[in-house]
Design a protein around this nucleic acid. Structure first.
Lengths: 108, 108
DNA sequence: AATTTTTATCGCAATATTACGATGATTTAG
DNA sequence: CTAAATCATCGTAATATTGCGATAAAAATT
């Protein structure tokens, strides 16, 4: 095994999990912060800011792109990355709704 | 490797990543939802609601407990799980702050 | 054309995660 | 005391993730 049984969960549950993965590694948190604060944008600048190799940073960027929360535009030979506003909003609202489902009145 | 270089990131970045991990698997999303909506609380009930084995559910519960977002109280031979309100709030505010850092005015 | 700059990708090694059956531990019920 | 119920843990297998050096790809510069 080692594989998540995605088929047995709802699309929404899988999407939430995917969005959460964007934030589930400190390097990706750092990248998303830098992009959200516009402190960096060019991949090379991100590499300078992060204590990881260029290959590793590139891999995290790829994962964030797969999720859709960032996008990159080419300015050869550079690539400028930025937050995808639509997906950022989706994440914000998705987590907002999730956190709002909590009903108090403890049983434990 | 395969190990995250936690030492080189800030405590906050690591904490955010950990909190995100709670939501980074569809089964855990389902569990947290059930607990937040109080549709289940006893471990056995969770197992009934989820398409996973008892051992697997127990493992996810353990991870959620490690993060701190749920807690369990013993009612032998049962265990009643529920959301830890404090950590739930911490997560809500942490993600709220994170999402609020986004500055518009795109460069891409 | 050769070099430089920048980024992506490959290949590998180490570790982590996911999943489950089987087994253990604990407490109640009979 | 024995059996049943409930949950945690162990052991194992399969796959995923993390990280990096080396290399490839693409375009500008010399």
């Amino acid at each position: 095994m080692g594989t998540t049984k995605s088929e047995v969960f709802t699309q929404e549950e899988n999407r939430i999990a995917d969005l959460a993965k964007a934030f589930a590694h400190p390097a990706r948190v750092a990248i998303l912060r830098l992009l959200a604060q516009k402190k960096a944008c060019i991949c090379g600048d991100l590499v300078d800011e992060l204590p990881l190799s260029q290959a590793t940073v590139s891999q995290h960027l790829k994962e964030l792109k797969r999720i859709g929360i960032i996008q990159g535009s080419i300015d050869p030979p550079r690539v400028c990355y930025c937050i995808n506003e639509t997906v950022w909003e989706e994440a914000m609202q998705t987590f907002g709704r999730m956190f709002a489902t909590f009903l108090k009145s403890g049983c434990c």
